[in-house]
Design a protein around this nucleic acid. Structure first.
Length: 344
DNA sequence: AAGCCTTCCAACCGCATACCC
DNA sequence: CGGGTATGCGGTTGGAAGGCT
């Protein structure tokens, strides 16, 4: 037995919305709200549309303060960063970009941003082939994927300087990479910046507890931050969820740190068994990473070298490095706050 | 000028989850 | 607690618009 249809398909109009339909829907919702029932709404206002269609039209087009097109460089960076971290969770990504809809961001990623980065990758690959690769091979380094100068920051890609955006105080700020990192932390990662004492060599390590991350995905109401200090929170989360811990190292490379068990489902999903996590990222990660450079602790490789990806997402720029970690520690918010900014 | 191709985006579809009774 | 229904989300599609030959 199949699922009951959400509406009478025969009496429902499909396709583009007319200005009259838009006006009807908009004026009704502005006056009465949705009434908490999208299914009944089109009947109330005499629209021959599916409730789902009305909802989508309102959310993606008619809702006030919607921005269309004109994505800034900074929004690009945010989208890329979050995509690398959490994948195609467009609604969460959209929640960090005021005025943007998930549909808009999804379209933008699929049609432009992906290609933009692909072009960038090709340029870098060409440049590397012509210079860096030769040098690496001469030195007898069997792994020329990471550029030699990348040891400046082996655990996290260099961060670009981001121009400040005039967001209001009521909106979450993701106008710098400290904030982005914070979001990544909230989504299940953590930084261990042992050499923070050196102002010239902030060297954060992004550790992802895969099982914890998965838990977040499974239970999005989880409050990661609470009122406890971040380290304590993270330690608690370690105790609670961690069976195995991985480090996103270099430019988001993935490295198993500890763990005795077999290849966990979480990592499998992240690195290979879960196509949505890496599918479509070949252009960022390189086929090497996606296909070849994965080993488990029982003989196969678990380190994924993502140096290339990092240099794509975060082009080298050493100017905004100080204070990043401190900023991160000062900022706290919950997963739900990230997802529903200003609504909690 | 016409036909073909590519790009872009609005809208649809189906699944998963939340919610209600 | 379980079943039915509504909602939200992400993947996919279809067609309009613009570019190219």
């Amino acid at each position: 037995m199949g699922r009951a249809p959400c509406c009478d398909k025969a009496n429902v109009k499909k396709g583009p919305w007319s200005p009259e339909e838009d006006a009807k829907l908009k004026s009704y919702i502005e006056q009465h709200g949705t009434g908490g029932n999208w299914i009944a709404l089109p009947q109330k206002i005499g629209l021959k549309r599916c409730g789902k269609s009305c909802r989508l039209r309102w959310l993606n087009y008619l809702r006030p303060n919607i921005k269309h097109g004109g994505f800034s460089e900074e929004e690009d960076n945010i989208i890329c960063s979050l995509y690398i971290s959490i994948g195609s969770r467009w609604s969460i990504i959209a929640a960090q970009l005021p005025g943007r809809t998930d549909n808009d961001i999804k379209n933008y990623w699929n049609t432009r941003l992906k290609k933009k980065l692909l072009g960038k990758q090709r340029k870098e690959q060409q440049a590397r082939r012509s210079s860096g690769l030769k040098q690496e091979m001469k030195r007898g380094n069997g792994n020329p994927v990471v550029p030699a100068d990348n040891n400046q920051n082996p655990y996290w890609p260099e961060l670009p300087t981001l121009a400040p955006i005039p967001y209001s105080n009521h909106e979450p700020h993701f106008n710098d990479h400290a904030s982005i990192r914070k979001l990544l932390i909230k989504l299940g990662g953590k930084f261990s910046d042992d050499d923070q004492v050196s102002h010239n060599a902030i060297n954060p390590q992004f550790l992802v507890d895969v099982s914890y991350t998965q838990q977040l995905y499974d239970d999005q109401s989880i409050n990661v931050s609470s009122s406890a200090p971040m380290e304590e929170t993270l330690n608690n989360s370690d105790a609670q969820f961690a069976q195995t811990q991985y480090a996103i190292d270099g430019a988001a490379g993935l490295q198993m740190l500890q763990g005795e068990s077999s290849f966990p489902a979480g990592l499998e999903q992240m690195v290979g068994g879960n196509p949505p996590r890496l599918e479509g990222l070949e252009f960022l990660l390189g086929d090497d990473m996606v296909n070849n450079r994965i080993r488990t602790n029982y003989g196969t490789e678990s380190m994924i070298d993502c140096g290339e990806m990092g240099s794509l997402i975060f082009p080298p720029d050493a100017s905004n490095r100080g204070g990043i970690i401190q900023q991160r520690l000062l900022q706290e918010c919950t997963f739900d706050e990230l997802r529903y900014p200003g609504q909690l």
